[in-house]
């Protein structure tokens, strides 16, 4: 068993402890602390899974902004939760059903670390591993001078330049970076309207939370 997997197992065990404790604890302040701890440990876990972008988001949103927002909510509410213990059976059943469906959905996915997974055998993978970030085909990027010197030292001709940046490449002449190519070129309208939705939501929140004279929220959150 590789050390990363062992680290994953221990981290996930700690995550489960923190999550259950955050639900069970009566003091809401402690619950906020435990939710923040949960996010920090999940960020570590995402880093071990090589999903560094997700880890950044988890640390910034989960451990940073969410904690502060929950603190802001604590200002307006009480500090302790009212004990109300009753199992809502239909809700429990719905949760179990959805969870079982999600687990069933993962059965089709390739195994963790599988070399023959589609992500590794697809022809675009070769282009992805050799990619060179440049704005235009044949354009000069920031590190080109450095790379030219290195190429001169190793006397290595730019062999992959034609295939990686010409119109016969995997990106059809778009931005050579794969992620940027998909998000900004192929899914440009999708991304544009996603941004519009997020902007509208943000404006709505500001208008709602801005507060008026005599509003207890005034000067509280924003």
């Amino acid at each position: 068993m590789s050390p990363t997997i062992m680290l994953d197992v221990v981290l996930l065990a700690l995550v489960i402890i923190a999550g259950i404790a955050a639900i069970e604890v009566r003091s809401l302040f402690a619950a906020v602390m435990l939710a923040s701890i949960y996010s920090l440990l999940m960020a570590c876990f995402w880093t071990t899974m090589d999903a560094v972008d997700v880890a950044y988001t988890e640390a910034a949103v989960g451990a940073g902004i969410s904690t502060i927002l929950l603190m802001g909510a604590l200002v307006l509410t009480g500090e302790t939760e009212i004990v109300r213990r009753a199992v809502h059976w239909p809700a429990l059943g719905a949760c179990m059903l959805v969870g079982a469906l999600l687990v069933y959905g993962t059965l089709d996915m390739p195994k963790f670390g599988d070399e023959n997974a589609p992500a590794h055998v697809h022809p675009i993978y070769a282009g992805y591993t050799q990619q060179d970030v440049r704005k235009h085909p044949g354009g000069k990027s920031h590190g080109d001078n450095v790379r030219a010197e290195q190429a001169a030292e190793h006397s290595e001709p730019e062999a992959h330049d034609e295939t990686a940046h010409g119109h016969g490449d995997y990106f059809h002449g778009h931005v050579p970076n794969q992620v940027t190519s998909i998000i900004v070129s192929y899914r440009a309208f999708d991304t544009l309207f996603e941004t519009a939705v997020i902007f509208t939501a943000g404006m709505g929140l500001i208008v709602l939370l801005r507060g008026r004279r005599g509003n207890p929220l005034k000067g509280g959150l924003l």
């Binding site: 920090l40 904690t67 604590l74 200002v75």
Partner: peptide, 20 residues
């Protein structure tokens, strides 16, 4: 850095009972 910011915010709340 994030940890530092979150701790500052929490301490401010714990001391002053408000964030603004």
């Amino acid at each position: 850095i994030l940890n530092f910011l979150a701790t500052i915010a929490i301490l401010k709340y714990a001391r002053k009972r408000r964030l603004g």
